[in-house]
């Protein structure tokens, strides 16, 4: 089946250029960085020795939910950048180099081509994010106290919906332009613009994709899944599907050579 063929080829490509090694490693660092540095801040300051005699550091006691949210915040910044960077050339690069000229004269549908690549990148992102968050969870349990399996699973899966949207958006721009750097810029600018809109209108649009992490905070605090989280997740998934359909449509209008 063609879809599997392309998926396998993408996975092999990411394996041969070491993405399957470095992306999970980077995610581990991104996820554990903040919880660890927050916990060890007093010791770090002490060993550096920059404190005046008699100064006492009163670090606010942080609960496990706040600690794991630190990881998510880093994922939403650095992690996002990594995800967009590894996906920016997935179609644009093939169009630019000319490989697409060989591949797309074979009888393969554009949607198969796009969606298989989408799935391959999503799998890599999922695994890297999973490993990073599991290790972060381990340290949070060790240093800040227990975070239940249910809480962790809820947080992990709901936030992954946002990451699905990010990958879909990157794939979408891959079909619009064929310069990988431009794909990166457009994706980041779009997400920043969405984030600004979210901050301005958040009280009116509780279902906006960017509000997922806020709602996850709420979920951890209250112990139940707020309706807004379901709503935002549904909207985000819906937008992702729309983006994929639009990608297929746009790629069809493009000429594979110039």
């Amino acid at each position: 089946m063609q879809w599997i063929t392309i998926l396998k080829k993408e996975l092999l490509e990411d394996w041969r250029n070491f993405k399957w090694i470095w992306v999970p490693l980077v995610f581990i660092i991104i996820c554990i960085m903040d919880p660890l540095s927050t916990y060890y801040l007093p010791q770090i300051l002490e060993s550096v020795g920059g404190m005046p005699e008699g100064a006492v550091i009163e670090a606010p006691k942080m609960g496990p939910p706040e600690a794991i949210m630190l990881s998510l915040q880093e994922v939403s910044m650095l992690g996002l950048l990594v995800i967009v960077a590894i996906s920016m050339a997935v179609i644009a690069g093939e169009r630019k180099s000319g490989v697409a000229e060989l591949v797309l004269v074979k009888p393969v549908s554009y949607f198969t081509y796009i969606s298989a690549k989408w799935a391959a990148k999503l799998l890599l992102v999922f695994i890297a994010y999973l490993i990073g968050m599991l290790i972060s969870w381990y340290y949070v349990n060790l240093l800040f106290g227990d975070l239940s399996v249910a809480q962790f699973t809820g947080l992990f899966l709901f936030y992954f919906i946002w990451l699905i949207f990010v990958v879909s958006l990157t794939i979408f721009y891959n079909t619009v332009v064929k310069i990988p750097g431009l794909v990166l810029t457009l994706t980041i600018v779009t997400i920043m613009a969405m984030s600004a809109i979210n901050q301005i209108f958040s009280y009116r649009m509780p279902w906006f994709p960017n509000s997922i992490s806020e709602h996850i905070s709420g979920m951890l605090a209250e112990g139940t899944i707020p309706n807004e989280l379901w709503g935002a997740s549904a909207v985000t998934l819906g937008l992702s599907i729309l983006l994929m359909v639009a990608s297929n449509f746009i790629l069809k209008t493009k000429e594979m050579a110039d």
């Binding site: 000319g98 000229e101 060989l102």
Partner: peptide, 18 residues
């Protein structure tokens, strides 16, 4: 799909180098 019946070699074929 007419692509079932044609083979095409571009002037400067580019492959996946890996």
């Amino acid at each position: 799909d007419i692509r079932n019946h044609i083979g095409y070699l571009p002037q400067y074929p580019v492959f996946h180098p890996w």
